[in-house]
Design a protein around this nucleic acid. Sequence first.
DNA 1: CTGAAAGCGCTTACAG
DNA 2: CTGAAAGCGCTTACAG
Lengths: 347, 347
Amino acid sequence: MPASIEDVAKLAKVSISTVSRVLNRRNVVNAATRERVEKAIRELGYRPNVFARGLMLRKSNIIGLVLPDLHGEFYSEIIRGANEKTRQLGYHLTVSAAIESDDSHDIVAAVANQGLVDGLIAMISETNAGITDALATVDVPLVVLDGDVSGARHDCVVIDQSEGAAAMMNHLIKLRPGRPVIFVGGNETNLDSIDRLKAYRAAMSGAGLAVADEHVFHLDYDYQTAFDLGVEKVAEWSRIGASVFAANDEMAAGVIDAAIDAGLNVPDQLPVVGFDDTRIAQLTRPRLTTVHVPMAIMGASAVELLLQRIEDPKRPSTKMTLQSELVVRESCGAAVKIHQPGLRGIS
Amino acid sequence: MPASIEDVAKLAKVSISTVSRVLNRRNVVNAATRERVEKAIRELGYRPNVFARGLMLRKSNIIGLVLPDLHGEFYSEIIRGANEKTRQLGYHLTVSAAIESDDSHDIVAAVANQGLVDGLIAMISETNAGITDALATVDVPLVVLDGDVSGARHDCVVIDQSEGAAAMMNHLIKLRPGRPVIFVGGNETNLDSIDRLKAYRAAMSGAGLAVADEHVFHLDYDYQTAFDLGVEKVAEWSRIGASVFAANDEMAAGVIDAAIDAGLNVPDQLPVVGFDDTRIAQLTRPRLTTVHVPMAIMGASAVELLLQRIEDPKRPSTKMTLQSELVVRESCGAAVKIHQPGLRGIS
DNA sequence: CTGAAAGCGCTTACAG
DNA sequence: CTGAAAGCGCTTACAG
């Protein structure tokens, strides 16, 4: 049985009120008594009971992070960034993710309503009917990652994909003027994929290039399906002098491997680029030209935003935009030296 | 202000005791009143206050997971497995990891002593003075991953590395009888690396092969350092007909890339194999022959063990051993068809 | 089967 | 600057 505030009070010969004051508002109490109390605390190894505190303060110092999934580098970087910042600011982080059987919306609601967390960070990768409702039931401060769910009263952190994607497209178009660019996207409803497709179309039409329907694909962000698509298509793509713009690094890796298996030289016979700049981007051969997305920073920024709101619930809701950035490596075929982005990109 | 148990009691015209009973021991209360109470709960959207409950029950339904690091597939799989099982059993998971400035031992202590978690899962990848002390201060149920910290009274989940590592070594030795095998390990003090080195030595001496000191390396599990080492050594290794046994997939990838950059054919001129069977193993070309380690299962098993102990604190402490398994792909040069392990391996 | 009451360990006005 | 007391929202013997 751990020591309680009463034990401390007894040992220090003061009331529990005074012990509590030493704990919470140190300066209010006389230096001599304070030292006596602190000594007692040390001797007893006293730590305030989290539940009793939470009951009075209505505060747990725990924030929740809900992700659509837990696979892969992308999410683990977000967790890493969030975890570090959370600890640094004296909070704790609980992580939840959608698992096969349940929808991420349910989880958002579940985590928020269970009454444990002081606030919630939710990554929304698709917008649909359910999600708006689910978010509406959240009655704690909320920061939305990625999904810019309009109209709602909460903070959000988004990646400005358009800039990086546009830079990438222009890069590709400049390398092979007038040639087609194949877009290999994620799910049709995925917000990131939608943004990236939009930038793709804008750049194409900006360069006076038509976008053929059969040059736009919607897969699932996975290596394997991209590989399978590649097996079927790379020969043709190469023949027409196309480049491939994949909406994440994994799919880019899949297409590259399919191309190599087909005996093609990447990038000479088929340039392929990715998105995200995960660890994989440096493991493929050729190394991936991709767009760097500051994932850890996204996690950390979300935590900062959330804690600011928890402390001041009526501050105006803010939207933080992080910049993405073109990283030229080998898979595009540009004769440019490799550029390694550091930890920058907060706007 | 959310509804309290008193609001429910009033609406249902019963005492709070009865409401509490409906919540906790449904069958004790008369069916008619129970229904009245449940209706009131529904109408009010009542949810018990977690802190008040925790204060009485001394239980939070939260378990902590402490990892040495949060980078990479390996850890994210553990989190995924733990998260899924935790939710499934009605608990919550908080995740912490060592960050640059602090030692994982401090974190174990910090998380355990803050009094929030009902139990703790800690991954111990090195054994040293500090760790035993830190573990001793933990006064909640504890499950140790990987590190078989002897003498302590807690459960643990370990990977039987020796079997997989031995299978791998025998496989390599059979492919190139009498030729040297290079060991590229992690930190000298890393427990996994130590185990794998031990299996390496055993297999070598079992085959009557001497182990030259200059054939054993201790790096840091990272792609880049392995790549750098490879740049320097692959030519020589290839010349003497050696194979490379790396202690994780990332380092194997680094060596492979260095070999390819040096114009060598892998596996023909230099077989290279990895360990862990992370996602990377299927992204390298040639695909990695490696040892499958059931990471998600490790996380899930730890949760199960922990919750069993929380429910029955005096059950005998158990040690769960998960089997690792050789996965033959391309990087070793064996003409064997690819074997994909499923989710097996619990012993 | 049900209710009144004590108590879990804190914080915070309210007096002094 | 300090203490006595009320109260946060629950659970659980204890009576009835």
